Simulated assay, not measured.
Amino acid sequence: MHVEQLFVETVIDIDQKLRCNPSEYGLLKVAGLLRPILLEKLLDDASAAAGMDAKFRVVKPGPYVPSPEQDEAWAKLLAKRPEVQRVDVAVEIRTDLLSGELHEDSQPGDHVVELGRRDFLKHAGVLVYSDYSYTVEHILRVAANSLGGIHWGPTNWEPRSEELRKHMEGDVWFGRPLPAAMMGSIGECTLRTCRPVADELTRLGLYAPESSEWVWSADGHCSVRA
């Protein structure tokens, strides 16, 4: 299969899995589909074939600034118990950082940026545990390499991803297990980047859908043949 065909059909597959209230299983399988796009060179090669420079539009968080009251409370506690390690943010979930837009609940210093694939993998702050901001890559490796997106196993070979797997174990976000819910947000962000590339490959004649499976709508997007 040519890279153009593989890329576009992978994008279609992700779109179909995210479209209709996906299950935990479906969202974890999205992680498996995202892996060649984000961790390997499928997006790079497809973008080159389309003559495009694919960018991920995300929100970069501003620096965390503790309140004076928080500083005062910690000062009092540490004076009595100096062995305690200060933690300002125990847990924070910010899927808005993947939306690509500022909202009324955005925090001071948040700003929109456009990132290449490698920098998108390093995009941090979507999940924070004990003051550590985990990256898109950490989250993807948990879902793809530990929880069944591609591989299933009790541990993850990448230390930070294994640490994150333990943190997320048992956590739920809007009724879904947290790792699966994160795959929904990362998948939607990736689709926004990949759809224009897929559309351009089709316009150039470098991709043709299987006649029995997929059709293209008048506005140039893929759908399942009825």
Rank of each mutant, 00 (worst) to 15 (best):
E4R: 11
P36A: 00
P196V: 01
A143Q: 03
H167N: 07
A218M: 11
V197T: 06
L43M: 13
E158I: 13
S223T: 14
D219T: 13
I12R: 15
T95L: 05
R195S: 11
V112M: 04
W216S: 05
Q107H: 12
D15S: 15
R192G: 04
K41S: 14
S223F: 15
A124G: 07
L147K: 06
K55A: 07
L43P: 02
G187A: 06
L178S: 00
P22E: 00
E69P: 08
R176H: 12
A181K: 03
G175N: 01
V89P: 03
L34W: 01
D110L: 04
S161I: 12
C20G: 12
P68T: 10
F56G: 03
D105P: 09
Q107D: 06
H138P: 08
V89I: 14
V128N: 01
V172M: 11
G32C: 03
L18Q: 02
C194M: 05
S47K: 08
V136A: 02
W214I: 13
A226R: 14
E213T: 15
V142I: 10
R225C: 05
K29Y: 14
V84W: 10
E104F: 10
S99A: 10
G148S: 04
A198M: 07
G175I: 02
G26Y: 11
L39V: 13
H103P: 07
S223V: 15
R86D: 08
V113A: 00
R86C: 05
A50S: 09
V128D: 04
S133V: 10
D131F: 11
L34P: 00
W74T: 02
M1V: 13
V128F: 08
C20Y: 15
G125H: 00
E114N: 08
V224H: 12
R141D: 10
E9Q: 10
M168D: 00
E213G: 14
I14Q: 05
G109Y: 04
L115D: 05
G205F: 05
V172N: 03
E72M: 13
W216F: 13
G220L: 01
D131K: 07
W214S: 02
E213I: 15
S130M: 15
G187E: 06
E40W: 10
C194G: 08
L140T: 01
F120K: 07
L98F: 06
P68C: 06
D45G: 11
Y134F: 07
V89D: 02
V112N: 07
G175F: 03
R81L: 14
G100V: 06
L102S: 04
D44Q: 10
R203K: 12
A46G: 02
R160D: 07
P36T: 04
A143N: 08
L6Q: 13
G125T: 01
K41H: 13
R203Y: 10
F120N: 02
D131R: 06
I37G: 05
P82I: 00
H221F: 14
Y134K: 09
S47E: 12
E92T: 08
V197D: 03
G149T: 03
A75C: 11
L206I: 08
A90H: 15
